[in-house]
Design a binder for these strands. Structure first.
Lengths: 121, 121
DNA sequence: ACGGTATTTCTAGAATATTCGAAATATTGG
DNA sequence: CCAATATTTCGAATATTCTAGAAATACCGT
């Protein structure tokens, strides 16, 4: 991932309405959420949200698909993973020991495979 | 980590000079780099870089310490880890299966330190 | 085709960000 | 204290972002 893409994505998430929107879309994976429903959920005018969704879309963090009258938005999880990876590798690239703690912290949240969901803690 | 802090950090990194600056500081851990040296390395006027460093600092992504005449900046790696964690957990919170691939991708980059070395809880 | 619904585009004002020269501030050595 | 060095603050020009009302566009059911 090139810097420009990463910057686009970071900037897209660096705004409260958009961060909330992305979060909400993640929670509604994989069904997605119509633009209007999302606007209602976030209590934001539809045209304002539309602008934010356009920014998230340009950053490739969300995808959209028309479903009859509505346009259903979905979080683009692979793209999001790429951003996270880019950030961490950017830092790991120089310093191997930096990411290990992050991985450790992540494990309880995301059992890499197999084990039952222990995450109810 | 609250949203506001995360947004501050994301916005701080969502700018090419600042992203470069942070990256460079990570590579110079743990010695750090004087503001002037960093400006020279990035080929940016000192006062311009100063403004960017102030933003990174306000976002808690870098720390600074005076060393005689120079002010030495360092990447705040724990804070950076928090951001990465925040982003990933934000997403993992709703969807457990999302982070696993990220962890997988991260492993080759950051061997979990063969030893059980429990990096400082 | 018409009326109703869903979403986006247009537009514009206010707020914020970026850049950098010039001036100001802090620190050290003599 | 003075001169030299390192960094930050100030000021101003330019550019971008955020917001939302109004208008336009796309779609569906009848």
């Amino acid at each position: 991932m090139e810097d420009e893409k990463a910057i686009l994505a970071l900037a897209a998430l660096a705004q409260s309405t958009r961060l909330q929107a992305f979060r909400t879309l993640v929670q509604h994976e994989p069904e997605g959420l119509a633009a209007g429903d999302l606007a209602r959920a976030l209590e934001v005018p539809q045209n304002t949200l539309s602008a934010h969704l356009a920014i998230l879309s340009r950053a490739d963090l969300v995808t959209s698909e028309r479903h009859s009258r509505s346009i259903v938005y979905r979080a683009n999880l692979p793209a999001f993973q790429s951003i996270a990876l880019f950030l961490l590798q950017d830092c790991c690239g120089g310093r191997t020991e930096i990411c290990a703690p992050v991985i450790e912290s992540l494990k309880p949240c995301c059992p890499p495979r197999g084990k039952k969901e222990k995450l109810r803690a």
